[in-house]
Write a protein that binds this DNA or RNA. Structure first.
Length: 446
RNA sequence: GGCCGAAUGGCAGAGUGGUUAUGCAGAGGACUGCAAAUCCUUGUAUGUCGGUUCGAUUCCGGUUUCGGCCUCCA
């Protein structure tokens, strides 16, 4: 069983060979909790959720870390805007974020470190970098000296470091690409050897990954836009501390676009899960995202979610067939609980080809003959983190049954006008009915 | 400007040097009082110009268009 992953570092699909097969270590850059993440942000978390599930199916232990950046300029601005404390803002956003993760059936990471819990370790690391001559202190900040890192642009070889005309030049910097490790500020502030201030963005991830996973770890993931400068700088910082690569494999997902423009808060073309779930189920939104390969752009359209919703609804209907005993067979042992559709698995092992995996699922579902095979299909779906569950609504069952009885009576005396009007009434209650040989069945519309 | 990526049927989207996936939508049929669902049948595609090849959607080169990164970013 070989897992191939596209490594940004080499620009190629590579055979995944773990550093230690007894404990696979994965770090994914998580949300900055100034605003609830939009669906584009969630693409990353959905993609790496699938990766973690796949890794868990192969290896006995997977340590998954996804951080929470809870200190950042944007957070400070947002808190001021709403006249609330930074702690309140970041906590509120984090709670909502976790709720949306649950709706999307995302695994809870083994560690979800909050940046503010690691300030003292960040300070230690910055001190060490200064000692190793990779960092220097200016009037305003502590800066990282990128010229000391010979392979600084290894992850992003196409970047150029001579575009000074595009950005305001910071006179304190020795090199244009140098970045901030510690910024001297009064609000919010932590004490440090360089005075009051707060850490730079890049050191946060380095410190958290070092503390929870140690270097080097297996996989570092995130959105494509983090390649430069964030991940480039994380690499550089690890070199400054240990003179090694921090991660063996770097994985980056492409963006969600709307009208071909990247979905981003700065453009303002964002979609939020809470809006989408008013019309579509969270699972079908997840399915819609997994129907495109993670390294390809995903242009968001309502038609696309509707398609996923149609597919998901159909799967729910098919599932109910296998729970009706009609096709039940004896399952010999517990084995089928762990078996998956091999074509689905192979697709996932090939650089997480979730799109192909869904297509293989269509075929498997089409050919499914018995409950044993259905179990394999559900196992395969769970590799994608997709649960087949009809949404639960508060329904007055008695009222529904009464209406259906009334309709059946009308049908018996061929009063179809009354029968149809009752059906309309039920439809308004979000109830779908189905006239079968065994009588009228009803269910809540997905 | 530098670099990178993409281009496939109505839509979405994989794979593949030769038999042209798959899904959604559409059309026709079966079933049904009518629906819904289900089943059967069905059409349409590889941006453009060259090259390599017996054969290219696939490999190579040019070109066009779109998008991304270039210290806000998933």
């Amino acid at each position: 069983m070989n897992l191939y992953l596209f490594n940004t570092m080499s620009g190629k699909k590579e055979l995944f060979e773990p550093i230690n097969a007894n404990d696979i270590k994965l770090y994914v850059c998580g949300p900055t909790t100034y605003q609830i993440p939009h669906i584009g942000n969630f693409r990353t978390f959905i993609v790496f959720d699938t990766l973690v599930r796949l890794l868990q199916s192969i290896y006995s232990k997977v340590t998954y870390v996804r951080n929470v950046t809870n200190i950042d300029d944007k957070i400070i601005i947002e808190a001021q805007k709403h006249e609330i404390s930074i702690e309140n803002l970041t906590h509120n956003v984090y709670v909502k974020f976790r709720d949306e993760c649950n709706q999307l059936n995302l695994l809870t990471p083994d560690h979800e470190p909050h940046a503010t819990d690691y300030i003292s370790q960040m300070i230690e690391h910055i001190e060490e970098m200064i000692k190793n001559k990779y960092a220097y202190v200016s009037d305003e900040e502590v800066l990282f000296d990128t010229s000391k890192c010979s392979k600084y642009l290894a992850l992003a070889p196409h970047e150029r470091l001579d575009f000074g005309n595009r950005v305001e030049i910071n006179k304190n910097k020795k090199n244009f690409a140098d970045f901030v490790l510690w910024k001297k500020t009064t609000k919010p502030n932590w004490q440090s050897p360089w005075g009051h201030g707060r850490p730079g963005w890049h050191i946060e991830c380095t410190t958290m990954s070092k503390n929870l996973l140690s270097f080097p770890f297996d996989i570092h993931g995130g959105g494509q836009d983090l390649i430069f400068p964030h991940h480039t700088n994380e690499r550089a910082q690890c070199y400054a501390l240990h003179n090694i690569e921090c991660a063996k494999y770097w994985m980056h997902n492409h963006f969600i676009t709307i009208d071909k423009s990247k979905m981003s808060k700065s453009i303002g073309n964002v979609m939020y899960l809470s809006n989408l779930t008013k019309k579509y189920s969270a699972m079908s939104i997840k399915l819609a995202i997994l129907m495109t390969h993670y390294r390809h752009p995903l242009n968001w359209k309502n038609e696309k979610i509707q398609e996923a919703q149609n597919i998901y609804d159909k799967w729910i209907r098919i599932k109910s067939k296998y729970h009706s005993n009609a096709l039940k067979i004896d399952i010999e042992n517990e084995k089928s609980k762990f078996e998956v559709i091999s074509s689905v698995y192979e697709a996932l092992l090939d650089d997480l080809n979730t799109s192909l995996a869904v297509q293989c699922l269509h075929r498997a579902i089409q050919n499914c003959k018995n409950e044993y095979q259905w179990q394999k299909i559900e196992n395969s779906l769970s590799l994608l983190g997709i649960k087949l569950e009809a949404p639960s609504h508060k329904i007055d069952e008695k009222a529904v049954k009464k209406l259906i009885e009334k309709r059946d009576e009308a049908r018996k005396i061929k009063d179809f006008a009354t029968a149809d009007s009752i059906r309309k009434q039920l439809k308004l209650m979000n109830i779908e009915i189905d006239d079968t040989k065994d009588g009228t069945k009803w269910k809540v519309k997905c």
